[in-house]
Amino acid sequence: MATNVGLVTVQVRDLVRRYDDRAVLDGVDLDIEPGEFVALLGKSGSGKSTLLRALAGLDHDVEGSGELAVPENVSVVFQDSRLLPWARVHENVMLGLSGADERGRQSLEEVGLAGREKAWPNELSGGEQQRVALARSLVREPELLLADEPFGALDALTRLKMHVLLRKLCAAHQPAVLLVTHDVDEAIVLADRVIVLDAGRIVAEETITLPAPRSAADPGFAAVRSRLLDALGVSV
C-alpha cells in the first residue's frame, strides 16, 4: 500500500464511515508528514477512534468511502496494553517478528524495563505494561505510530512520566504519530499539531510552536488551550 504520496506519510481524502446510516466520519481530509506528531482531540462519539481504526485497517465490516493512503509499516498502541497474558514480556515485544532477540532486549531497555524480559505481564504495573506495549510498537520501527488514548487508563503521575518517555522515543525513532486523546493538555504537551474532530468533521487545527519543555504555566500554552477548549465546545 506504500503508494506515491510524495512527502506525506498519511493522506486521507473525503473519508466517510457509517454505522447504521449514521455518518461517524463525514468527509475527513488529513495529511501527516514523516516524523510529524499529530494529536487528535474530540469528545466521546466524535469519531476519533473510528478514524484511527480506519488508518489501522481494523474497520472490516464498516461501510464507507473515501481515499486512504498509509504506509506499509504501521504500529498501533491501544488504551489497554493488550499484552498476551500467557507470553513473557520478551515474547510479547517480539510477537510476530523472527529472530533478533537482541532488538527486543534493546527495545525493553529503551522503555526502562531492562532485565524484565522473563516477567509475565500480570507481574507488571499498569504503567509498566503500557511501556512494554510501546516497546512492542517501536521495535518494528514503524513509519506511522497510531496511539488510541494510550495513557487513558493510567494515573496522573504515571501519565506525566509516560509523556516524557514518549517524546524521547519519538525523537529517537522519528515515526509519524497520530495520538488520539481527550486530554487537551496532553495534546499540547506532545504534539506538533492538534486537530479537533466534532461529529465526524475536523473543526479546528492548531500548530503548536511552543518551545520544549512545554509547561501549562506558559501564557502561550493557556491561549492555545482555551482556543482548543472552545473548539471542543467547553467554555471555561
Binding site: 485497517g57 481494523l58 504500529s75 498501533v76 491501544f78 493488550r82 498476551l84 510477537l95 510476530g96 512492542r136
Partner: peptide, 21 residues
C-alpha cells in the same frame, strides 16, 4: 477479540496466530 485485533496489527500469519494466540 482484542487479541485477535492485536494479531492483525502486528501482522501475524494464520499459523502464527494459531500458535501464539
Amino acid at each position: 477479540s482484542r487479541y485477535v485485533e492485536l494479531a492483525q496489527t502486528v501482522g501475524l500469519s494464520q499459523w502464527e496466530f494459531i500458535r501464539r494466540v
